[in-house]
Each structure stands twice: as C-alpha cells, then as structure tokens.
C-alpha cells in the first residue's frame, strides 16, 4: 500500500508540510516495498486557485490510498473521498515521525475537511 505525505523535502527526514494543496512536494511511501517516490507540486504551490483540487487529483492518479498531511480543505477532501483515499491529519515534525504514528495506529481518519476553503 502507498501512503502520501505532504512535504518540502526529498526523504523521510524532511519536514511534514502542514498544508496539503500548496505543499511543495509529495512523498509517496510504499509500505510493502519500502520505497520512496517524490512528486513535485510546485505548479500548485503557485496556483491562483484550485490548488487543493489539483493536488488531490495528483494524489488520486499516483495510486496511493492514504494521505497524511496537516490540513485538508473541502474541495480537496471531496476529490480524495471520491477516489477512495483515506485522509489522516497529523502534526508530526517530520515525514518519518508521521509514518511511525500512522503505523502505530495513532492517527485518526478525517471524516471531512478540517479547514475552510481559501481562495
């Protein structure tokens, strides 16, 4: 199973980005193969509108089934939910910490957006 983290770096020690739609990068971690893949999200970082929607679309296309991020707005959540991706809010400092918390079952699945839409 693949898990996506919003981040500003390129490895597990990188900070977890609390923003989802405008995160600089997404780190995809394959739990089975223990492999890392990085998706650049620079385009959405600078998008005027719809960053959350486009980022969610990117995640859906990546084949990941779990997203661990800081906060997720309503439009992004709608796309993620439709694509069957579970969203977990997390305030861990690094991707590695967030991954540990997820594996330990410490994260709670979000049932909706936890921040308002922002233009």
């Amino acid at each position: 199973m693949k898990i996506v983290f919003s981040t500003s770096g390129n490895d597990l020690n990188a900070p977890l980005d609390s923003r989802f739609g405008r995160a600089a990068k997404f780190l995809i971690y394959d739990l089975d193969e223990k492999k890392i893949e990085i998706i650049d999200n620079q385009q959405n970082l600078n998008a005027a509108q719809g960053a959350g929607i486009q980022s969610a679309e990117t995640i859906a296309r990546s084949g990941a089934k779990v997203l661990v991020s800081g906060h997720c707005g309503p439009n992004a959540f709608r796309v993620l939910a439709a694509a069957g991706i579970k969203v977990y809010s997390c305030d861990a400092a690094t991707v590695a910490d967030a991954l540990e918390q997820f594996k330990a079952g410490k994260l709670k699945e979000a049932v909706g957006a936890d921040v308002q839409g922002h233009w």
């Binding site: 969610a56 796309v79 694509a83």
Partner: peptide, 13 residues
C-alpha cells in the same frame, strides 16, 4: 480542473 475524474464518476467544481 473544474471537472475531476479519477476512475470514479466525475466531480464538478
């Protein structure tokens, strides 16, 4: 990205 379809039914924004 006003209409999103990732394998499921499309969502309209």
């Amino acid at each position: 990205h006003a209409i999103i379809s990732t394998g499921a039914k499309p969502l309209v924004f």
